[in-house]
């Protein structure tokens, strides 16, 4: 009970902090970093909802990011939308992400493991190539420029910030709901042993595809938001292979398959990325640091911060409560460490 109360309080405090943040820190440089961080909180959580729970590592989610960005850009320019009207397009961007995810998933989810990863990369490159070549639609290499926005200078970033916050909170909430649901249990059963899950009556293709489509929606929405905030999309920034590595790194650092892990990973990595990019002019040194950090995370903390920390806390509680069985400690450790509840099902 105490643990769940603490958890509720923590989530509420974090949410309150998120809401008042731009009112306290009014420096546009800071809120701008915060917007990109929230964009990645949403993207990493959404990625984890599919890849973390199902074990199918997708390196093609930039497809949804870029498609959302291009859809928002094309619609805004074609319909001559201005100001906050553009935010109304974001649900449409999410819908388009979901629509693209259906054929993408139907092709890619027929294969497993390595082959799946490679197919997602191949489909990613098809989209990048389309962005380069369909010039009448995408503007080719020069990309699509967002119209100038006439928000008041002092609070210019705030609408973008709150839009990002809403998408991020929704993405995390969906991730949490799925993890607690029967659907989430089926996903993790697939991760642990797909053939056995199917033998037990899980409709694996339907479940995988459902999770894939759900995880595409927030990514496409933040893609659209990112276009409007950054002011430009071109094929190399919209369909950026580094985006796929970034969301995977965030989820791995925090804890693959946990709800809080990708959030924590994004909160650590994205501000660091913004800081270093500001420091190192060319950004090449930054690229090396990024790769090196990824290597360290995978080799030293392969299960991520949250499962490792939860395990340590659990052990410590067990020691303290050896007298009364130490069940609570076990429970806490189990809740954080992604227990194989799927195995129990089986």
């Amino acid at each position: 009970m105490i643990a769940s109360g603490l958890r509720f309080g923590g989530v509420a405090a974090l949410l309150a902090l998120g809401i008042v943040f731009p009112l306290v820190f009014t420096n546009p440089a800071v809120t701008s970093d915060a917007i990109y961080t929230l964009i990645f909180v949403a993207a990493a959580s959404a990625w984890n909802t599919f890849s973390g729970y199902s074990g199918y590592i997708s390196l093609g989610h930039a497809v949804f990011f870029g498609s959302g960005a291009y859809l928002t850009g094309i619609a805004t320019l074609d319909w001559g939308l201005t100001g906050s009207q553009v935010f109304l397009l974001l649900p449409l961007a999410g819908l388009v992400g979901a629509i693209i995810a259906v054929p993408f998933g139907l092709i890619a989810l027929r294969v497993r493991r390595h082959t799946f990863v490679v197919i997602t990369i191949a489909i990613f490159f098809i989209f990048q190539l389309m962005a380069y070549n369909l010039q009448s639609l995408t503007g080719g290499t020069s990309g699509l420029l967002a119209p100038t926005v006439n928000f008041a200078a002092a609070t210019y970033n705030n609408p973008f910030y709150y839009a990002a916050l809403v998408i991020a909170v929704a993405a995390v909430a969906v991730s949490w709901l799925i993890r607690r649901s029967r659907f989430g249990l089926q996903l993790r059963a697939i991760r642990d042993d797909e053939d056995r899950a199917r033998g037990l009556g899980v409709r694996t293709m339907r479940v995988k595809l459902g999770a894939f489509v759900i995880s595409a929606v927030p990514v496409a929405m933040v893609g659209g938001l990112s276009w409007y905030f950054t002011g430009l999309i071109d094929p190399s920034s919209g369909f950026d292979p580094l985006f796929d590595v970034a969301v995977a790194l965030m989820a791995f650092l925090g804890g693959l398959g946990t709800v809080a892990g990708p959030v924590l990973g994004a909160l650590i990595i994205e501000p660091a990325q913004q800081y270093f990019q500001g420091q190192v002019s060319a950004g090449y040194l930054f690229l090396m640091l990024y790769g090196a950090l990824f290597l360290v995370v995978i080799l030293v903390l392969p299960r991520g911060v949250i499962p490792t920390a939860a395990e340590q806390i659990g052990k410590w509680r067990d020691k303290r409560r050896e007298g009364d069985g130490g069940l609570a400690g076990h429970r806490l450790a189990a809740a954080g460490a992604a227990p194989d509840r799927a195995k129990e099902l089986a």
Partner: peptide
Amino acid sequence: RLRGRERTAMSLLVSYAVAVVIEGALYQ
């Protein structure tokens, strides 16, 4: 150094990370 159930997926990510490091070094 990769161990455990996620070894295969991790090897992809590790080699991706190695690629990013080499790319950065070549740019540099």
